[in-house]
Design a protein around this nucleic acid. Structure first.
Lengths: 200, 200, 200, 200
DNA sequence: TGCTAAACGAGACGGTACGTCATGTCTTTTA
DNA sequence: TAAAAGACATGACGTACCGTCTCGTTTAGCA
């Protein structure tokens, strides 16, 4: 069913994924074509069709290649002991990456494909977002142990509460995505919307 | 700039927007074509190109038509005096709509177009999301007055905190989108992540 | 069924047929492609596929255009009163044309398509070969009246007897195709293979 | 230059040629592909490319195999002493073979390749048509000795005169190819087109 | 009888062309 | 006289084959 992967040409594979990522930056998702990727990679179209079921799958693998290249070992969030500080740091970095023109178009492309293709979404959840989300959960668990996070908070909801607004504002462009916004999100999420009996 | 709208055939306009919306349900965003819309609407292609600059603009207007049809006057959120109750109600309804097969594909299409096209995003922010967001802010302001919301909370951030996680989970399919999740989001957002000195 | 021919672009039609004919000379039948024709004609591929069902049909029409351009009125064979002289003249001309590099490749292409596609063969028999064969029969009939051709000879067989060997030798390259051969064919066909009681 | 033929796998060779011939019957010349032949023969593509320079060469060899299988010794035409009788017999058989669906497509394919490829035409003239044509010439020479054929007739032209019309009508489908037609060709070729002083 | 070089099946590869579909522009016809 | 109908140049789609190129695996000839 799956093509025999043994004879696969690794050089071509990397050329394709790199070409796809580069083209996303250059021409954007709307004008990304399989023909274009093949041409830029110096590869026959069939070589793409042989190994990937869809354009989205290529984009997905391009990110996978990138993340493999970047990391050594599973990702972790900084843990200085103070949750607010750490989250602020991380979210500011996230915001910066989202505003980086090198990544913006490719990331939008990936988000789009995931939004439209459930199968790809599952792969994303497992292979790309999975480890990262686990790291986030881990950091929050540590905060729980340190008494900085309520015992009864659902960690997945907590993650969504912190990163969701950021991702959303980026994707929908519903407002400027700045470090200040990131800071506000952190503090608001931690304190909650309700008035607190005693000051922060 | 804008084509003279005077001679515009209103019947064709509605036929086109309805056809676009219906096709989104039937064939999905990926297979939606201008030719298809024109054919289903019984309209010449040129009539579409004359009045809309892009496929995204057609989809956008289709939603606009829908929202005009639905509402009388600007939208409002229920205000029973208890914020938690009202938010829970509204978010459950939102979740239900997002799971409604009639709307899912079209809404994903719109979200996709907005994510990729800044101009469309601006139009969305102003014409479709604008009034709704104002209603949300209004409800939160009322809660502030009632002492159910901290005075120093940025209302836009608050809105993002409540609706962001929902939208996100829906768009990225990062988990099941249920009424329970909606309830959890409301209570977590209101209480915040930090431990509270005294019970809820 | 047949596409409405009313809106057809005559300029494109001629460009396509001319390009096809020229390409046959330049690259030969084996390397003739629809894409190549479209490119050389400055035309979209679809314009070819819209109006012709096959590559053979394009080639056929290219010859049709040529023959229309060439002739005024239906073709006739010379009639000096002496059949042998006239046939010799005509066959020499035919041989010359077959050896003309401008026509050789295109004519081989047409012959090939006809040999493989019965429908095309029927069209050829009717529209291209038909009038010519009629002219040949006419000349032979005239010879019959002049007592230069036996009364009981089937004129179609006679035509085949004279032109068949030429066509055959050309197509199969079974020997050199020269004026001398043409002359021999004429005299042999007229005299027959059997010994004659009295001189020629 | 020529690959060492020593290690050649005879089983594969026969499988390839048989597969090629069978495929010609089944799918026709236009859809005959090297890949198809290799697949049907259960053979790697390279094995075909190693031993044959072109598709036409494979088809040619397929016929060669067939003719080797059929015959014992060089072919001969029947010689009852009466040329007309013998030719009629032979031509009727030829006509029958040409109308046989088992051979029609393959023979058209061979004719096509020969018409387009001079090298193949030379091979055909020498290896396939050569012995047969020699047999035809032989029979005519015998007729000459018996006084049934004029002394001054060029035997090659005579062969063309008899078989050319048949082959032509078959290849171009310029008319029905029947036994009657064959008979007419024989008698017309023998008698010639000119009126004879005294009856046949 | 065991070694080695080739021919073999399989099939991935960079390509070309296929025939189809949609794009956005244009012209023609119709109501 | 606007809009439907649809032809047009363009260009991408996904597929089929081309001819070349490894891969391991027979298989045959020599040593």
């Amino acid at each position: 069913m799956t093509p025999n992967t043994a004879r696969r040409n690794e050089t071509s594979r990397r050329a394709i994924l790199t070409a796809a990522f580069d083209l996303l930056q250059d021409v954007g998702y709307a004008k990304l074509s399989i023909e274009g990727i093949a041409a830029r990679a110096g590869v026959g179209k069939q070589t793409i069709y042989r190994w990937w079921p869809s354009k989205g799958a290529v984009i997905f693998d391009a990110f996978l290649l990138l993340s493999e290249a970047a990391e050594g070992g599973p990702p972790t969030l900084p843990d200085t002991g103070d949750l607010a500080t750490d989250l602020t740091l991380v979210l500011r970095a996230t915001v910066e990456e989202m505003n980086d023109p090198r990544y913006e178009q490719p990331m939008r492309a990936l988000a789009t494909e995931i939004a439209l293709d459930p199968e790809l979404a599952a792969a994303y959840a497992q292979r790309l977002d999975g480890p990262l989300r686990e790291a986030k959960r881990q950091r929050l668990r540590s905060a729980q142990r340190a008494g900085q996070l309520a015992e009864d908070v659902d960690l997945d909801v907590a993650v969504d509460m912190i990163w969701g607004p950021i991702l959303n504002r980026w994707l929908h462009r519903s407002g400027p995505l700045t470090a200040e916004y990131a800071d506000l999100v952190v503090s608001t999420a931690l304190n909650g919307l309700r008035p607190r009996r005693s000051g922060e």
